[in-house]
Each structure stands twice: as structure tokens, then as C-alpha cells.
Amino acid sequence: MNTAPLLSIRDLTVSYGNIKAVQGISFDVYEGEIVTLIGANGAGKSSTLRAISGLAPYGGTITYRGVDLRKTAADKIVALGIAQVPEGRGIFGNLTVQENLKLATWGRKDRPEVERDYERVFGIFPRLKERRNQLGGTLSGGEQQMLAVARALMSRGKVMLLDEPSMGLSPVLVREIFHVLTEINQAGTTVLLVEQNANMALRVASRGYVLETGTLTLSGTGAELLGNPRVKEAYLGG
């Protein structure tokens, strides 16, 4: 494994007024990994991802490829290669599927490559190709989730942050999304996956962390955590 982490989080804190959502967590993500962050409702998972993407003010340091991201605006962070699939998918319902994808290429200058990426993305999600001229708001939940992942691919994210991609999807679709994630990962994208569906997440993850009320309480490889009695009890339904 590469010695320098791609993404490095040190003593991260995120607060909303008096609420301390994230209370000084540190972790690393190395190139090529799938790292998962599991935790219950309100544990601070989304806040962590929002801080990395520059959407929430934070304390501590976040570095990407050795560069401190503190002074980098959210849109520039995307241009550096950190894409996020936000909680609730964040599809623009008034834009067509094609437009949703196109918007995500805003910061890219490599137009011929963009054309090839549409084909690649439509190859992964043929359903989006069929629905390319349909408004985002008319897609089913599963299709919206596919579109959200496809958008992150279109922005050429080297790291993809995913916030509960399994939320609200049927078990079949969850498996499909996770399958795609492992494929994308094998094709070279590093993944930081936030999930409540700990079972699925830990199975695909190289490493995982457990986040409880703003603090990291456990860490290990996916297999280690799957076998951990505390994880089993709290997140895998006993």
C-alpha cells in the first residue's frame, strides 16, 4: 500500500451552534481503497462528508494529496478530484438526466474525454441512457441514486464520497449499487462510503470505522468489523 494517504482527516470537528456533531476524529483513506464509515442516525457521518467537500465549516485539518483543503472553495475541491454523492441523492428534478450529468462536467476542460465518459457512464447504467431526456424529478428512487453516482463519475472524481447510497432502495437495487461501486473502485476510484447498512458496506470495504456521537470508537478491516461482537450487536442486528 502507498505510504502517503490520499485523504487525511486530523482532529476534525464540526459544530452547529452548541451541537458538536463531530468531536475530533482522525482517519486516512489510501488510494484504491474502499473505506466505510458506519454509524447510527445523528452520529456525524454526513457532517464529516460535508466538511471534506467544503460545505460545512470545520475545525482540524483535511488534506488531499498532501494539500490542506481549508482555503479551497467547495467547487474547487470537486475540480481537485473529490466528488460527493450527497445524502438524499441531490438530483436536480427540473433538469433532464443528460443535463444533470452535463452540469457535473462544469470544471472539466477535456471535452473529447467528456464525450467518452458519457458512453462509459451509460454503459454502467443503461437505464439512464434510456431516460436521458426525462426530467430528474420523474426518475424512481433507484434511478436517481444511479444518476447521482453517474454524476460523480462525470466530474471525474478520483475519490468518491457516498452518503448512504442504499437509503430507501430495495435489496436488489442495493446489491446493484454496491456491485457498481466495487466495479468503479476496481477501475481506479477511491471510495469513502458512509452507510447505516453496515452489513453491505463492511463486505465491500477494505477498511471501516465506527462513528458514535461524533467520535470514532472502532476501526479495522471490513472482515474484522463484521466479526466484531459490538458491531454485530449494534449495527448488524445481533
Binding site: 460545505l55 470537486v78 433538469l95 470544471g107 472539466r108
Partner: peptide, 19 residues
């Protein structure tokens, strides 16, 4: 397109790399 996206949900727009 970015204007229309903002009118839908401006909190997501920066995640598209749009200033």
C-alpha cells in the same frame, strides 16, 4: 443550466464543481 439547478436546490450546486 446552473441557474436552473440553483433554483431547484442551491446547496447541491457546488458539489457539481459549479461556483
Amino acid at each position: 443550466m446552473a441557474m436552473r439547478a440553483i433554483s431547484w436546490d442551491k446547496s447541491i450546486v457546488p458539489l457539481m464543481g459549479v461556483p
